[in-house]
């Protein structure tokens, strides 16, 4: 049930944004001195020629609807559309489902935005860490300033000994490691 809700939410969000596209040609000449609205950021750049960035790949993945919804809730989509480079550890929907019941719903509440952001930032490193740059036991300091530990055994990569890297997807602005568990930041 939770899964369906989130999927719907993310579709709705996307649909809403897509609807605004109808007359972007006239936007540049619009000068009506109305209230300022939030303008589109890096994520809104029209570009079908370049390699897909992390956000575009995530948005296009049916296995990452929860993550995409969370990124939107935390207003993190703009960040990950940046030149980066980023290394993003992207938990699948199943990974989120493994969390205790109600955890995700709770995190998606507006009052928990900081907590959600902290968790998401624990999945993001500024830097393009290819697997061959990494060694077993190596730590990476994530965007929330907490370290993760990389485990590499027989060529298979894990994070913090809890999440398996199940796919590696190169993106225009970094690398996505698809993981099967959500990483929880250590307490302060």
């Amino acid at each position: 049930m939770k899964k369906i809700n989130l999927t719907l939410t993310s579709l709705l969000l996307c649909g809403l944004v897509a609807c605004n596209n109808s007359n972007n040609q006239t936007a540049s000449t619009e000068t009506t001195p109305t209230e300022e609205t939030t303008a589109g950021g890096q994520e809104a750049v029209l570009d079908n020629d370049s390699e897909k960035d992390i956000v575009k790949i995530a948005v296009g993945s049916k296995d990452h609807t929860t993550l995409v919804a969370a990124l939107k809730q935390a207003e993190y989509v703009n960040d990950l559309s940046n030149a980066g480079p980023f290394t993003v550890f992207a938990p699948t929907n199943d990974a989120f489902n493994k969390l205790p019941a109600g955890t995700v719903d709770d995190l998606m509440k507006p009052e928990n935005k900081d907590k959600l952001t902290d968790i998401l930032e624990y999945h993001v490193a500024v830097g393009g860490y290819k697997q061959d740059m990494l060694t077993d036991g190596q730590t990476i300091n994530q965007a929330n300033l907490k370290n993760i530990t990389i485990n590499i055994k027989d060529g298979k990569m894990m994070v913090n000994n809890v999440a398996n890297v199940v796919a590696t997807i190169p993106a225009a602005n970094g690398i996505i490691y698809v993981i099967d568990a959500v990483l929880l930041p250590p307490a302060n």
Binding site: C14, G15, V17, T34, V45
Partner: peptide, 14 residues
């Protein structure tokens, strides 16, 4: 869909 997500009022941030 994602690519079509350019909000219409870019200039209205001014």
């Amino acid at each position: 869909i994602a690519n079509g997500c350019k909000p219409k009022n870019v200039s209205s941030a001014t």
